[in-house]
Design a binder for these strands. Structure first.
Length: 879
RNA sequence: GGGCUGUUAGCUCAGUUGGUAGAGCGCUACCCUUACAAGGUAGAUGUCACAAGUUCGAGUCUUGUACAGCCCACCA
């Protein structure tokens, strides 16, 4: 045996830097396109939003995925583990606006010499410099590229075994092509339509949003009781929270069974201030218990108004603009009839052009003025406004309530396919299983088709143009779709077939669809982006469907659902066989860890320095899939301690295995009962570990491996020291050496998916070839132990541990060091247990420093849980 | 209001098909022992949220309750 120089101390910074560099240079994690599908494990990696920095929540979930991937790689699988960057969409636009002090103005021409500069502070929207659409998009790309490099460095330093050759950005040309291809495929399958209809609209960002991006927020609103006249001269009270929409009132409704209002049905009501006649009708959605039981229908106050309006023949009275301000309206013209136009126009002029909130307060003032009621008897507003708790819909990234505004949008038909999509969800193996119910519940609750168009700039354009009629109006019902061979296409830059660019926006010419796709319309095809669907069929077949989709649970309703929907529509397939849903990182008070809330602790970059990548990996893989975990630096410390221990014990074992006087040894030398007992424990652990990993339960593997490993260090290594060190050349010595070798090699490989750096370091000590990595070594398998006869093994390990613990305890109690000699140990216990004990007596005598023939035995049944009663006598002196 | 999850030692969490409650951290005392003081040894600590049921036996199964977290719905 040759003795080699081993590093003296565990230095995580040096060691991790070395291996991160090595993995990069040797490209060990590269996907091999020549391997068959069944021997490949494909991951549909979540592309993180590129928005400045990654936080511990990312570290947590990506490490869990990496752990699963590393296991699969060690099982011999060819791994496809790509990385995407979600850099398209609103978050990037907002970030660029803030950092660079600019805003996109499509009317400004492109300036190729424009560079701009990053601002120190966030620039208020009104002070932002307007730049052209192309300049804005270029700036977005520049900004995201910078962040993506930063992200890649973090992932490499954390040890994610990503194949960096398989990188993509959701805004790049390939992703645009796939998104547009997906769109056109759905067009050809009649799953897409565009329509002008009231849709949820964010007035701040001035874009449509989809149901999945909407959240309810509790808000205190006020009921205002307003007197309405009736054509026969009587009157009634309605309660409304939205008096500013009075001018958009198209009807008044009450429940058909509500006796109070039976007498009014079929008659006309007259609105205050505007003197507009509207029908009084029965509607099922009116709740007699709420307010006064009779309410006004406006275009549009809420989703009920939209629904009811659609099935009525009543006109649409649009008073709210896309920017959230009241539109100019003239009473006496078009749909805005009035019995007193001049009074109506005078009233409306006071709210014209105001923002919603201001219009509301102005309207309330007007309604409380004397004579505001059409009946001419006092004010229309009765009593004081009554506060009420309401749940109001907001865009999840917005801070003003959503409005329903009629606009033209593209939709994907999902409403008609709920049952089929539920069935698709059921074909996926969800871990943990209960996450499927989040999917099911969402699908069952869908009440709108998927709106995929956004009125933004940094996104994938629709490959669509429209002809323009002689009046200059786009002909929306005959869209001109791009040819698949021309993708990706930007209809604002490129010309459709059969047209000249000069005829853009001209009567008789064409116009481009100015919208971009929702970011989910792109990320819902991440499996296809990676597989090059439609471009490289051979590759697609090898990578689709994927094996694993890792993701967080709050985006089951978006990312998981949309991905399942698209794969189903495109190819009738599930996108992946397994969905592994990670939990959240939470603070000790259980709130979600996030930077925006200001409760994130150290940055991942700092923690890598302070604790080590392996310590962070330990923390992340200690938690099961789906279970929230507390940000706890205490756990990082424990992880780091495990790495230190592994480093040191490996060094110690290696020293004995590779000493100059170490003899040859092999599996067949393992004959000592203690050694066999240790091997048996190890074999059972290996068995369970494989089973747990197959079910994505990496946390259980770590827990059990860690537990047996500490047992190995604290008890087994101590017990066999004498044989492996001083009696190398005896049968017992060889048996111990062979066992130590097996244990070390097995523990390293069991730990490799978790603490990947330190295991690689130690593994390199054991290998003669420089390039053999532990991460491509085979994961331990029970068959490795098949040559070793474990039949006669009993509970030697437990018994040895108990007696050694007893001896140690006696010394501790006497405040003596652990090497203090022991004169005598009287053991009382069952004969059968004593027989087992006698098999490990030699090791115990040496490890406990018990004098020769110091053990004596009394065969007798004893009380209590332990196997023996020990009567230990220490020597008087240590000489 | 509907759905899902959780409640085990001071803290963070394990607990496989029901069979005498487990680990780490923290705490106390001690120890330089052939790798490891960034270490080791030993010790104390629990009406398993509550109630009822099934069972010879329940942390584990059933039902109900309370509390916590998340998702969805409620928008006049």
């Amino acid at each position: 045996m040759t003795k080699r120089e081993l590093p003296k101390k565990y230095n995580h910074l040096e060691l991790e830097k070395k291996w991160a560099q090595n993995w990069k240079e040797t490209d060990v994690y590269a996907y091999n396109p020549d391997v068959a599908r069944e021997n490949t494990f494909v991951v549909d990696t979540p592309p993180p939003t590129v928005s400045g920095s990654l936080h511990m929540g990312h570290v947590f979930s990506y490490t869990q995925t990496d752990c699963i991937v590393r296991y699969q790689r060690m099982k011999g699988k060819n791994i496809f583990y790509p990385m995407g960057w979600d850099d398209n969409g609103l978050p990037t636009e907002r970030r660029v606006q803030n950092l660079w002090g600019v805003k996109c103005d499509p009317t400004v021409a492109y300036d190729s010499s424009w560079t701009g500069e990053r601002k120190e502070k966030v620039v208020k929207p009104r002070d932002q410099q307007p730049i052209g659409r192309k300049n804005f998009i270029e700036l977005c790309q520049k900004q995201t590229k910078e962040d993506e490099i930063k992200y890649e460095n973090l992932w490499r330093n954390l040890g994610l075994s990503i194949d960096w050759n398989q990188q993509y950005e959701t805004i790049n040309s390939h992703s645009q092509k796939m998104s547009q291809f997906s769109f056109l495929d759905l067009v050809s399958k009649n799953k897409v339509y565009s329509t002008e209809a009231p849709t949820m609209w964010d007035v701040t960002y001035q874009t449509a949003v989809a149901q999945a991006e909407v959240e309810d927020r509790a808000r205190t609103g006020h009921f205002y009781d307003i007197r309405f006249g009736v054509e026969d001269g009587s009157e009634f009270l309605i309660s409304t929270t939205r008096p500013e929409l009075l001018a958009a009132c198209i009807a008044v409704v009450a429940h058909p069974d509500d006796e109070r209002y039976q007498k009014f049905f079929g008659k006309k009501a007259i609105t205050p201030l505007f003197n507009v006649e509207v029908p009084i009708l029965a509607a099922e959605h009116a709740d007699p218990e709420k307010g006064t039981g009779i309410l006004m229908v406006c275009t549009f106050g809420d989703v009920h108004d939209v629904e009811w309006w659609k099935q009525s023949d009543l006109p649409l009275k649009q008073v709210l603009g896309l920017d959230g301000k009241m539109l100019p309206v003239t009473f006496g013209e078009g749909v805005f009839e009035s019995k007193n136009s001049s009074a109506a126009n005078a009233a409306y002029s006071k709210i014209d052009g105001l923002f919603i909130n201001k219009a509301k307060s102005t309207m309330v003032e007007m309604l409380s003025e004397d004579g505001s009621c059409v009946l001419g008897k006092g004010a229309a507003l009765v009593g004081e406004p009554r506060p009420t708790q309401q749940a109001v819909k907001y865009y999840e990234k917005g801070d003003r309530p959503l409005e329903f505004v009629p606009t033209r949008q593209w939709f994907i038909k999902i409403l008609d396919h709920r049952e089929e999509l539920l069935a698709q969800g059921a074909k996926v193996n969800w871990t943990p299983a209960h996450m499927k119910s989040k999917f099911d519940q969402w699908v069952k609750g869908i009440n709108q088709d998927w709106c995929i168009s956004r009125q933004r700039y940094f996104g994938v354009p629709f490959p669509v143009w429209y002809g323009v009629d002689e009046n200059g109006m786009p002909i929306y019902d005959k869209p001109l779709f791009a040819d698949i061979s021309d993708l990706p296409v930007d209809p604002m830059q490129e010309t459709p077939k059969g047209f000249e660019e000069a005829s853009r926006n001209q009567p008789g010419g064409f116009t481009g669809d100015p919208n971009v796709m929702d970011t989910w319309a792109t990320s819902s095809v991440t499996p296809q982006i990676s597989s090059h669907w439609g471009i490289d069929e051979a590759r697609h077949k090898k990578l689709f469907p994927a094996d694993l989709r890792p993701q967080a649970h709050e985006i089951i309703r978006t990312w998981a659902f949309y991905t399942i929907a698209k794969s189903y529509f495109h190819e009738g397939s599930v996108p992946w066989y397994n969905a592994g849903i990670s939990g959240w990182v939470v603070t000790p008070d259980r709130s979600k860890l996030s930077k925006s809330k200001g409760n994130s602790k150290g940055s991942p970059e700092d923690l890598l320095v302070d604790f080590s990548a392996d310590a962070l990996r330990y923390w992340a893989t200690k938690a099961k899939l789906g279970v929230d975990t507390i940000y706890d630096e205490g756990v990082f410390k424990v992880g780091k301690r495990l790495c230190t221990k592994l480093f040191n014990v490996s060094k110690f074992v290696m020293m004995q295995l590779e000493d100059e006087d170490t003899p040859e040894y092999s599996h067949s030398d393992i004959s000592n009962m203690l050694d066999l007992a240790m091997i048996k424990e190890l074999k059972e652990l290996v068995d369970r570990s494989n089973k747990n990993f197959e079910q994505f339960d990496f946390a259980a593997v770590l827990l059990e491996t860690e537990s047996l490993f500490w047992n190995f260090c604290d008890h087994y290594v101590e017990l066999v020291k004498n044989r492996s060190y001083k009696q190398k050349n005896t049968q017992g010595g060889k048996s111990a050496l062979a066992t130590l070798d097996i244990c070390l090699g097995t523990f390293l490989r069991l730990f490799a998916p978790f603490i990947s750096f330190v295991t690689e370091e130690v593994w390199s000590w054991r290998q003669d070839e420089k390039d053999s990595t532990i991460h491509k070594a085979s994961f331990p398998n029970a068959s490795e132990f098949k040559e070793i006869d474990l039949g006669p093994v009993s509970d030697e390990l437990v018994i040895a541990k108990e007696v050694l613990g007893g001896i140690r305890g006696e010394k501790t109690k006497a405040q003596k060091s652990l090497k203090w000699p022991v004169k005598a140990v009287k053991v009382k216990g069952e004969a059968q247990k004593i027989e087992v004990l006698k098999k490990v007596l030699e090791d115990l005598t040496a490890a406990g420093n018990v004098s020769e023939n110091g053990f004596s035995f009394v065969s007798e049944k004893i009380e209590g849980e332990s196997n023996f009663e020990l009567d230990i006598t220490l020597s008087e002196s240590d000489s």
